[in-house]
Design a protein around this nucleic acid. Structure first.
Length: 864
RNA sequence: GGGCGCAUAGCUCAGUUGGUUAGAGCGCUUCCCUUACAAGGAAGAUGUCGGGGGUUCGAAUCCCUCUGCGCCCA
């Protein structure tokens, strides 16, 4: 750039961070600074797969933290000349939104209700506690979902813009929009046609409150209080077999007793003997299985259909009948044909209709009365499976669901999916173990159907036979051009809606897909797979997936599964996992503890760049303490960048653009070149924090030592060769520093860049680590050390740094003399030194004679 | 019970293949209104590198073990 096309500098008198975010985010929007250039070929593109936040919640500091990390990488890549594909989406489909809609409007979805046009919900936020939710039709419910997510998404967008995330907002998608529904259904139909998706009636983890199936990945263990109950079963010879159970209420669904094959106590009974259940008199076999734990209770357990996942294994592997007693509403069902004993039927009659909790209480009473409860229940804390969003323990019910094969039931597929992870570079590397560990521990395929409403419908219908039974094994599928479809509203080709749910007609699948079944396709959704093949080819496989490490098992794994099936490839080259934000006491931040801080207030209080600095200081993947102190440091750094830029640019620009000539200046530039090389290497390894650390350390040295040292020379009027050299070096260093900081301090860098450059710093080239000819980075070390000693002498004398020095004698080894001679004039200027003398000595040591009262540094041992 | 990670100054953290006397910032103490910055600057003090054992000429770093903490899973 020649000096003629430089804009005149326009430096404010009092630079400030206030208002900087609004100014630049508007400028970036109107300049399309972050637009993806889709004419770029694949090798010039850096494509990022970003996590769409769940809009039904609120953005918290953890989002700010991890989203900033991704943005820092995006900004670096953009500066290296890449066309950065950096989309954002909103994850608005799914249960979280439904729950928020219910709570916000005071409604609930009832598919049997009729649609009401222009429906007005009873409330808009904060319905009273005693409000009974109003039943609304599925269509009305979905309308309300759409209304609320649109509202929530506006707020999200304003926060993310304020945070300075350099998305190309024209690439925005939402997981419920038409395009996403189409992609999601299309991918599902591909899975179906290739045999990767299937439907099956099987025991399913079930949340009785949400009335939906739950996938393995959404389930969690919680320690809850329970009690062991010793219950006596009876053998035909009159002897009792005592079992221990925490779920006596399931006694009616008992299908067998089981003990370990090597358990001497029960060995003789296996396969030959039977026992009858207490109260109900149902005869069940006594069987052996290695999962029975001889150490637990009495060593023999009752198998119920189904009390827990072990029951499911036993039921499957021992070929047992299903005798379910808990219905999908969590209440005991009425119909139990396997109980033939009259007394037993009467007893069961009392249980029917009750919840598990009520049934347990009643069951204990009945067992106590019959004398079949031995002793008293023994309280115990034990792990119980919950849906991660649920409040009541999961039940296992038998139901028809859709699954996508994910290796949970096939060794070869599992191995292939584990191997896919080797195609990805993990940051940090150890995160790959979590993936491998999770995939290795799967014990079933991916359940993708959910009995909910606000989601992408499973895009199939079923023929209904003349007897009125749907044929689940031969689903009717739409053509791809029809997508997206809603089988609850649309009729398949060759049918009319009048044939819905009648013999000889059809039935629409009522379920929607799991939210992960759609979000696992974010690369395909954002990259406009099938809709825009030219674009997709330029961005897929993507360069980078960014996400937090807790959803490796869900989002990351599911995305790999879909890509494996659809493209036979890993979806990205790099996976960057960010850590958690922890409380100062190192607990995970949580709402319940009341310690969640709203991001907007922090951005306002400390400035966005200060918060970005805090995020950028944390090493990739490392859990990090929430620290406003770090934000204060970031604010100080940003302010310093403003001030030093003002100072350097205020020196006046050198008339001619030459090279620095003074060895001092060349030394500084050589040091800076090493920093640039470090930062570049760090960023290539996705380690933004290391780059920041290197840049920051150099920057403070630059401000405190170098600028102080040369400023008198740079000010010299009229400018001589030395002044010009200093000015050239200062400007060069400033331009480099502003660009090194740009990925982190996005707003401040842009502000100071705008004072003297055209165009955005975020579109400027990342600095090249070109070493100036003949630069000796160590030359300045001796000079800095000498200056530090002079400053120390003044501080210890409790004098101002301006205090003048009559005589400065420097003792130093001969090899340092050249450096000190080169720095002599600058040292004298910066230290207000009148006379300067250089002597031979074993170590660098300054003897400082202050005026008017002389002092020497020789009174204490020199530090160097 | 399994997988992964963490433990370094009062606090938050660096410390890259083992290599002088272990670093930074915050905080603390002292001083300085100095013409880029007082929302600033100059300087100072502060460590059993979680405990124990081992390898090595040499260990915060490698190995073993114990303890404590966190996340994910069973």
């Amino acid at each position: 750039m020649s000096s003629s096309d430089r804009p005149a500098t326009r430096i404010p008198d009092k630079p400030s961070l206030d208002g900087i975010e609004d100014r630049w985010s508007h400028q970036w929007a109107s300049d399309h600074t972050y637009s993806f250039d889709r004419s770029a070929t694949r090798d010039q593109v850096f494509a990022i797969d970003t996590p769409p936040p769940t809009v039904s919640g609120s953005l918290h500091i953890g989002h700010v933290f991890s989203y900033t990390h991704t943005d820092i990488i995006a900004r670096y890549q953009r500066m290296t000349g890449k066309s950065v594909f950096y989309p954002i989406g909103w994850d608005d489909n799914g249960l979280a939104t439904e729950r928020r809609v219910q709570n916000y409007f005071g409604v609930r979805c009832d598919p049997a209700s009729r649609y009401v046009a222009d429906f007005e919900p009873p409330f808009h936020g904060e319905p009273p506690k005693d409000h009974q939710a109003i039943a609304v039709s599925r269509a009305n419910f979905i309308e309300l979902c759409e209304e609320l997510v649109a509202q929530d998404e506006k707020i999200f967008e304003s926060v993310l813009r304020r945070l300075g995330l350099s998305y190309d907002w024209s690439l925005l998608y939402t997981t419920i929009d038409e395009h996403s529904r189409r992609v999601s259904q299309l991918a599902f139909l591909h899975n179906l046609s290739r045999g990767e998706a299937y439907t099956q009636d099987a025991p399913t983890l079930w949340d009785v409150d949400y009335k939906t199936a739950v996938a393995q990945a959404e389930m969690e263990d919680r320690e809850v209080a329970g009690a062991y109950h010793q219950i006596a079963f009876h053998r035909s010879d009159g002897a009792d077999i005592v079992i221990d159970t925490t779920r006596p209420e399931l006694l009616a669904s008992c299908v067998a007793l089981v003990a370990h094959p090597s358990d001497e106590r029960y060995k003789a009974l296996f396969g030959t003997a039977t026992a009858t259940t207490p109260l109900f008199g149902v005869e069940v076999p006594i069987l052996a299985h290695h999962l029975a734990d001889p150490e637990k209770g009495t060593g023999i357990a009752m198998i119920c259909t189904f009390g827990d996942t072990t029951d499911v294994t036993w039921w499957r592997e021992l070929n047992l009948p299903a005798r379910a007693v808990v219905g999908r509403d969590g209440r005991f069902i009425a119909d139990t044909p396997w109980i033939t004993d009259e007394k037993g039927q009467a007893r069961y009659g009392e249980l029917a209709g009750r919840t598990a909790k009520q049934a347990q209480k009643l069951m204990v009473t009945m067992l106590r009365e019959s004398g079949e409860l031995l002793g008293e229940p023994r309280p115990v804390m034990h792990p119980v499976k919950f849906y991660e969003r649920g409040d009541r323990a999961l039940e296992i019910v038998s139901s028809r669901q859709w699954y996508i094969r994910n290796g949970g039931r096939e060794t070869d597929l599992r191995a292939a999916l584990v191997a896919r992870a080797d195609e990805i570079t993990w940051h940090p590397a150890h995160m790959q173990h979590r993936y491998t560990n999770w995939v290795g521990g799967l014990n079933g395929d991916w359940l993708v159907s959910r009995q909910r409403f606000f989601g992408v419908p499973i895009p199939v219908w079923y023929p209904v036979d003349p007897a009125g039974n749907p044929d689940y094994d031969n689903p009717i599928v739409p053509s791809e051009s029809q997508l997206p479809i809603d089988p609850s509203a649309d009729a398949p080709d060759g049918y009319t809606n009048g044939q819905r749910n009648i013999p000889g007609g059809f039935m629409g699948d009522a379920d929607v897909m799991d939210t992960w079944a759609t979000s696992s396709l974010t690369p395909q959704i954002a990259g406009r797979w099938e809709a825009d093949p030219d674009l997709f080819e330029r961005v897929f496989p993507m360069d980078m997936r960014a996400q937090a490490h807790d959803i490796i098992r869900t989002w990351l794994f599911a995305t790999v599964v879909r890509s494996h099936w659809e493209h036979g490839a890993a979806p990205w080259r790099h996976a960057a996992l960010s850590g958690w934000i922890l409380d100062p006491d190192r607990k995970k931040m949580s709402k319940s503890k009341g310690n969640v801080v709203t991001p907007m207030s922090l951005l306002e209080q400390y400035s966005t760049d200060a918060v970005r600095y805090w995020a950028g200081s944390a090493r990739p993947g490392v859990d990090t303490a929430y620290s406003e102190d770090q934000m204060k440091v970031g604010r100080k750094l940003a302010t310093k960048l403003l001030n030093v830029s003002k100072f350097v640019l205020g020196l006046g620009q050198p008339e001619t653009i030459g090279a620095a000539t003074d060895p001092i200046d060349i030394s500084m530039l050589a040091k800076l070149a090493a920093v640039v090389a470090d930062c570049t290497a760090a960023f290539e390894g996705f380690d933004y924090a290391r780059s920041l650390e290197r840049t920051e350390a150099f920057f403070w040295w630059f401000c405190d030592d170098y600028v102080e040292l040369v400023k008198t020379r740079a000010y010299r009027i009229p400018a001589d060769v030395g002044a010009l050299s200093a000015q050239v070096a200062l400007h060069a260093a400033l331009g480099t520093l502003q660009r090194l900081f740009a990925p982190i301090l996005a707003f401040t860098s842009e502000e100071v860049w705008s004072w003297w450059q055209t165009g955005s710093v975020h579109r400027a080239p990342w600095p090249a680590p070109a070493e100036p000819a003949g630069g000796d980075p160590e030359l300045l070390d001796s000079v800095s050390e000498a200056m530090a000693q002079v400053r120390r002498t003044k501080t210890e004398a409790k004098l101002s740094q301006r205090a003048s020095v009559d005589l400065l004698v420097i003792e130093a080894p001969a090899e340092l003399h050249a450096a000190l001679v080169a720095g002599r004039s600058d040292i004298c200027d910066a230290g207000s030194v009148t006379a300067f003398e250089l002597r031979e000595g074993p170590a660098l040591r300054c003897l400082v004679t202050l005026s008017p009262s002389p002092t020497t540094a020789g009174e204490r041992p020199p530090t160097s």
